[in-house]
């Protein structure tokens, strides 16, 4: 993989990426937290409904909840970190090409018509780059 193809900077100074990152984080974490909480309460509700005797409910489910808290803390932090990393990658894949195109167009607007637009293979935007470059070919080189 050449230098161009490798992602070097995952967090761009781009408001678009920040917006993508924010929305993708919310879209990943909110449903996870919502479904997790629902399952948590449903399971414990059903269990307590089967045990019913209050002291037995506390004695049986209390230690389970304490263990679960540790598991959630120990497992939750890496999980959130992984999800955040994933969100950064996704947001970079979406915002990166836009950011690059914006920079290239800026150079072209300044009069540098020798610039050619190029995207990474994984961005899957080659047809767009090709069309822009065809337009650039027709422009006088200054």
């Amino acid at each position: 993989m050449n230098n161009f193809q490798r992602r070097r900077q995952y967090l761009l100074k781009s408001p678009i990426q920040r917006r993508f990152l924010f929305h993708s984080t919310i879209m990943i974490l909110l449903p996870t937290a919502f479904v997790g909480s629902l399952l948590f309460f449903l399971i414990f509700y059903l269990l307590s409904d089967q045990i019913m005797i209050p002291e037995h409910v506390v004695a049986t489910l209390g230690p389970v909840i304490t263990k679960l808290k540790y598991i959630l803390i120990l497992g939750g932090i890496p999980l959130v970190a992984v999800l955040l990393g994933w969100a950064i990658i996704i947001s970079h894949r979406l915002a990166g090409p836009i950011y690059r195109l914006e920079q290239d167009l800026e150079k072209i607007a300044e009069g540098n018509h020798s610039v050619r637009v190029k995207f990474r293979k994984n961005d899957r935007l080659d047809p767009l780059a090709e069309k822009i470059n065809r337009v650039l070919e027709k422009l006088p080189k200054t």
Partner: peptide, 17 residues
């Protein structure tokens, strides 16, 4: 003898003994 007032959030259930 217990009288139990269950709550959907089980630790909020109340009980008279």
């Amino acid at each position: 003898v217990y009288v139990i007032f269950p709550h959907i959030v089980f630790f909020k259930s109340k009980c008279i003994e």
